[in-house]
Structure formats: structure tokens, C-alpha cells
Design a protein around this nucleic acid. Structure first.
Lengths: 215, 215
DNA sequence: TCTATAATCGAACGTAGATTCGATTAATTT
DNA sequence: AAATTAATCGAATCTACGTTCGATTATAGA
């Protein structure tokens, strides 16, 4: 076999989605390129046509997941709803998003460490390899900036609510960490065949956290 | 070198504590036996005198962490405090515990998957290896039972509070997952040199969650 | 003091997995 | 239709790591 006919050809996003599922099952280090490739009916060698290496593939998965999450909450934060309704809707869309794609959600929680652990190539490496690593580091830093931005969108909304007296006075960063911890954990324990669906779970979490923050 | 003099000799618990730190930094798959051994000034080979293999070492770390956590919350749950004070104290001791030993806390969050992924030895394995695996599986199941028990201690306290009318009517399992998600996340972001100490963080989380659950 | 056991090490083994390379075929462009 | 580029594969390479083994020294018990 060589190149597949166009209708069977695999594209970048197919690989990312499949990779996220493999990562969820196995974790980054245990996941093999072969395993990821098999999930889209390719061989390991073929993956290298789409991604420079395993690290870059991981980064691409995380970038995708974060972008999706940010695109969901940002318009709500920018709307002119009252603070409490803003926060409730942000919680709900984020939690529902996590239940709809637990693979990417779990990757965002579990694989950040692997991303940080990526080690520089040895000094003996080719100039091309060193350039590729520099690229990787730059993209990774941008990713972490985006991640902080995501958290900041929540902080801004909560701070606004406190200033307007809708929310009680509290430590905004800690409250947001508390909230996001609760969210992230959903991606770990949620099962599509469970007792409740994503929307129901999201409402319950929102009820608790809103009661916890209201003045 | 061979056996070290008694005062430099390394004991099981030293290894477990060091292993937890290595796991926190690297994750189970990326952590090498050499790296763990180096953290207690041993060679990789020496670890095999204390633990049958890497999987068993991981399990021992997790067992230790869970035992510590359970021993902290159980007496509070068994006390005759009112429900809200019980829950508040349980939250506080657990969160403070996580900040005091982030390594074990992080392992409990991140390495469970590695524990589940441990694969059976091939049929070609020795009888001894197969027996060892059976032992491992039994211990692992006991661990998961304990883990569910830990969560159940929280559920019982919350349910009691709901029944007595101290807490509002809510979905107890979901509330407890929400709570524990917030807790677990502390072990991920907490830094000993941060703005707040463990007790302060614990109080803030308790404030939010108590407000969220009170009738 | 003699023996058995505990704790340690260096070296060697086997294997699995990331990555590379050259070849091969499909699609696209000229 | 010729030439170029895209997508794929099998096979080979290289390395790192878990684990085993035999030897060596400390400690504890008789």
C-alpha cells in the first residue's frame, strides 16, 4: 500500500481526535505512535507525515481542546447578562463540553505535565532539530498563555460580580481554581452511560457553585 | 559497595515518599526506576529488593496516600458534630493534607490510570510471575474499594445533613464529586511558596462549598 | 565466632517504542 | 500526459528502560 484514495485519506483533525482518545485510555507516555496510528488506520511511520514528532502531536491535541473551550465561554463572558447568569452559563457550557468530549478534557487535565517534561534535544542534534525544538517551545508557551487566559475569563466575570455586589466578597483566584477543579474532575468520572446526562450534571454543579458565590 | 551501614540504610517508607515525588514530577510511565532509586541514593537494581516490580511500587505509593487521607477524615465523620461542622472539618483536613504532601496527592489523581493499565503477564510467564500478578490484582481491587469507601464517608455525611434539613436537598453523589474535584485540583496547583498557605486555602474552599450546600 | 539473612551493587539481557529512510502510489498542477 | 507534490508503508536503526543475576558486604541470631 502507498497513498490511499482521497475518500479514505486521513486528515490532521481526524488524527487529533483519535489521539485524544488514545491519550485518555493510556496516557501520553504509555500511548504509542503505533496505537494512535492504528486508531485512524495508519502505520506509525505515516504519522510523521502529519506531525514532526510525538511531542508536537500532543501539543496539537491540547491546543485544539483549549481553543474549543475558550470559544464556548468567551462570548458569554462578553455578553451583557448579569454576573450570576453569566457565570451559570459559562459553567454549564464548559461542563457540557467536557462531557461531550471527555477525551480532550481528560488530556487537558492529565497530559499537561507530559507537555512540560519534553526535554531539549542534545547539543549533538542537527540544526533542523534544534530549530524544531525552538518552535515547539514557543508554541508551548503560547499554549500556557492561552490556558491562563481561559482561567482569566472566569476571574474577570467573578470579580465583576463581586464589585457589583451580586457575589459575596471572596478570594477570586481561589474560587476560580475551586470551580475549575470541580469542572476538570467531571472529565475524569463522567460516563456517557451514567445515571445523568451532561446538562443535568452541569446544572447541579452550577447550582452549588452559584449558591456558594452569591452574596 | 554492597550493604550500607545501618544508619544509611533505606527503608520501604523512604522509598515510597521519594517515589511519590518522582511520580509527581515525571508521571508513572516517564519515571524510571533509576530516577526513583537515585532519589534515595540507591541503584535501580536495589529497588527490587524492596518491591517486586515497578507496578507494585506504584500501588504501594497509592495505598499509603489513601490510608493517610482516610485516617484523617474518618474520625471526624464518626464524631457527633452537627453535619455542617463535620463537613467543614473534613474539607479542611483533607485539603490541608493535600497541600502538605502534594506529591502523594498528585499521584492519587494522576496515576490511577497507570494502575488500571497494568497488563497481565504473558501465558509464557513462570508460575511465580502469575501468582505475583494475582496478588497484585487482588491488592489493586482492595485499593479501589478503599477509594470508594473514602468517597462514601463524604456521601454519608452529606446525606445525613440533607436528611436533618441542615443541607438543602441535592444530588449527593454529584455534590461529593464536585467537592472532591475541587480538592484534587488543589494538589495540582498549590505551591508552598504561594500567596496563601494550606489552611487559608482550605477555609476558603470550605466557605464556598458549605454555602453551596446549606439549606 | 560462625552462620544465615538483609541490603546493596555492576553488568548484562531482552524488548519495546520513537524515529528515519527509501520506495511506492494517488492526487494535483502545468 | 508529464512532472511535482502528498500520503502512505515496510523495514531498519538506535536508544532507553525494566528486570535478572551473581557477587559483595553488613547485620542479627545462635
Amino acid at each position: 500500500m502507498a497513498r490511499k484514495p482521497a475518500d479514505q485519506s486521513v486528515h490532521r483533525d481526524d488524527i487529533l481526535r483519535a489521539a485524544a482518545e488514545v491519550l485518555q485510555r493510556s496516557g501520553y507516555e504509555a500511548a504509542t505512535m503505533k496505537e494512535i496510528a492504528a486508531a485512524v488506520n495508519l502505520t506509525a511511520a505515516s504519522l510523521y507525515h502529519h506531525f514532526r514528532n510525538k511531542d508536537t502531536l500532543l501539543l496539537a491535541v491540547l491546543e485544539l481542546g483549549l481553543d474549543v473551550a475558550i470559544r464556548k465561554i468567551e462570548p458569554i463572558a462578553a455578553s451583557d447578562l448579569p454576573s450570576d447568569q453569566k457565570l451559570r452559563q459559562m459553567i454549564c457550557v464548559h461542563v457540557v463540553g467536557l462531557t461531550e468530549n471527555t477525551a480532550v478534557g481528560a488530556a487537558m487535565v492529565f497530559e499537561i505535565r507530559a507537555l512540560m517534561q519534553v526535554k531539549a534535544p542534545p547539543k549533538s542534534a542537527s540544526a533542523e532539530d534544534r530549530a524544531a525544538y525552538a518552535d515547539f517551545v514557543a508554541r508551548r508557551e503560547a499554549f500556557f498563555k492561552q490556558r491562563d487566559h481561559f482561567e482569566d475569563v472566569f476571574r474577570v466575570v467573578v470579580r465583576e460580580g463581586v464589585e457589583r455586589g451580586t457575589f459575596r466578597p471572596l478570594d477570586v483566584p481561589i474560587f476560580v481554581k475551586t470551580l475549575l477543579g470541580a469542572h476538570n474532575w467531571v472529565g475524569v468520572w463522567y460516563r456517557p452511560d451514567g445515571r445523568l446526562n451532561g446538562a443535568q450534571i452541569a446544572e447541579m454543579i452550577a447550582d452549588t457553585m452559584l449558591k456558594g458565590v452569591l452574596a
